[in-house]
Design a protein around this nucleic acid. Structure first.
Lengths: 287, 287
DNA sequence: AAATGTGATGCAGTGAGCGCAACACTAGTG
DNA sequence: CACTAGTGTTGCGCTCACTGCATCACATTT
């Protein structure tokens, strides 16, 4: 028999093996679930064991069973657990990538999300040079935001037109002329993976952004770099490629697509906290 | 000892309790994770037990630990598994429609499913205005959910009564009076294709929802819009028509045949597996 | 009807997880 | 600087819950 590394809990390992089997090959068409016997054979375990484990998993909502075919599928609780932490997770995990972008070009870098028709900046890392406007927590209409094109990359043209029309107070000035430009930019963002927005808030600023996708494949945020220096103007597309690449890496870290775990590079283990500086375990919750 | 009435696996229950704690309250700002002692106290379990369980969970990738603060958070594997849920697929497909609704009325729009007697919100798209409470992954009793009426539209009256009685803690207050109202609303949802729920969680919110049907014709989800602005109050039925129309389009995208009337003819898979016609456990497997 | 598959269940033995305690460690405290 | 108070980890008996084999109930195919 093959030796099982005994470091992990046996029950946990068994349950996760089962879940992994139920996850199947991802988007495979055999999404109607799997039977007990097949799973047992697939794992080389006892039917009874798998049957009992699945019953427990179902009781907890980790899997659910089609009452007709008696086959099991992944359950709602997995989704509920993951969905709740998605937002907090976003900001926390984004920091390294935003910093990397800011450092790479020595320009201001941002993390933005879409809130209705407004673009909310969640995180901003300034360049080494002066005047950095703090945008964190500030909402800007999507048309005026540099990251807007990336955030809308998944939208179909009609919706974008509606949004643009609704956001602009009245059909005036350059709106009509820029609408087609917007759609073109969005199409470019969709294909190339990054968007370049010229003359938004400020004529002196050009924003290069790229969409970030979460574990569901939806665009949940955008990374953005505002190119202010003349040096960058000549290589916007080069910058765009890098931003897109960074956004892609970030997306994978969020669980996008069928990405491999990425073993999380060995940490330098710097220091261990004894007593936490600020006692936070006070948020009272009644069980 | 504390009572252990459930017949579920003890280890699994413990692990899920831990994960649930790590998930936090969702929108909470406590994204930097939780320590072992705090989790143990929160759960009323032994520190050692929690420590060992977390190590196993980390080994499996279900949680990850900040090497600096030594605090735990949910890990990549949970998100990877969640992405393979059929709920994730539903969300992916629903996103454009939910966005369209949110944009059309500039109100919060949701995608909800029924889980037992609870309504689980899978996707929420906020309006451009104000602050938006993140409901994704949160379950609410069916009576208190705006989309509840749409999700129950196919149920016969007796079962609805049962569910309402079972969900309400005791036969009290407006329950009896609203029961008939519920049945009327459901009947309306059945015939008109949309439901209007008044005074649910909040007196200031009115939810307009419509059922979504899958390829079998069964109601698997509901689209919902929460009307908060006074402007919308006067045209709830007009909004309802649009929500119903959107839900119908989405249903078609899910494979719902428009021709199939109501009773959801059993066509694809009415049989229960005795012996599988074609043995499918042939896909070679490499761990 | 039998045959062959499905998933569920009873039961005895044993191995794994539980709890208590002591441990190593760090950061505040006087 | 020792002291204290907090952190998280580990050693080790004891017990219980899980394993595995068997059989069972049920459904589909022949």
């Amino acid at each position: 028999m093959t030796e099982k590394p005994p470091l992990s809990s046996a029950g946990l390992r068994r349950d996760l093996e089962i879940l992994e089997v139920l996850a199947g090959h991802g988007d495979d068409r055999d999404a109607d679930g799997f039977g007990v016997s097949w799973i047992a054979e697939r794992l080389g375990r006892e039917k009874s064991q798998v049957s009992r484990a699945l019953r427990s998993l179902e009781l907890e909502g980790m899997v659910e069973r089609d009452p007709l075919t008696r086959r099991y599928r992944l359950g709602w609780r997995l989704f509920a657990l993951a969905a709740r932490t998605q937002h907090a997770r976003l900001v926390r995990l984004a920091a390294p990538y935003v910093r990397r972008l800011a450092a790479a070009f020595d320009e201001d870098a941002y993390l933005c999300v879409l809130r209705g028709s407004m673009v909310l900046t969640l995180l901003s890392v300034p360049s080494s040079r002066a005047y950095h406007r703090v945008w964190e927590g500030v909402s800007v209409p999507v048309i005026m935001a540099g990251a807007g094109r990336s955030l809308l990359a998944d939208w179909d043209d009609d919706r974008v037109r509606e949004l643009l029309k609704a956001t602009l107070p009245s059909g005036l000035d350059s709106a009509v002329s820029s609408e087609e430009q917007w759609l073109a930019d969005i199409a470019h963002a969709r294909s190339a993976g990054y968007a370049i927005s010229d003359t938004e808030l400020d004529d002196s600023e050009i924003a290069v952004s790229a969409p970030v996708r979460d574990h569901r494949g939806l665009i949940t945020a955008a990374l953005s770099v505002s190119v202010t220096r003349a040096a960058g103007r000549s290589r916007l597309h080069e910058i765009g490629e890098i931003v897109a690449q960074t956004a892609a890496e970030f997306s994978i870290a969020l669980g996008h697509s069928t990405s491999s775990p990425r073993p999380a590079a060995e940490q330098p283990r710097p220091r261990r906290p004894g007593r936490p500086a600020a006692a936070r375990p006070d948020s009272r919750v009644e069980p």
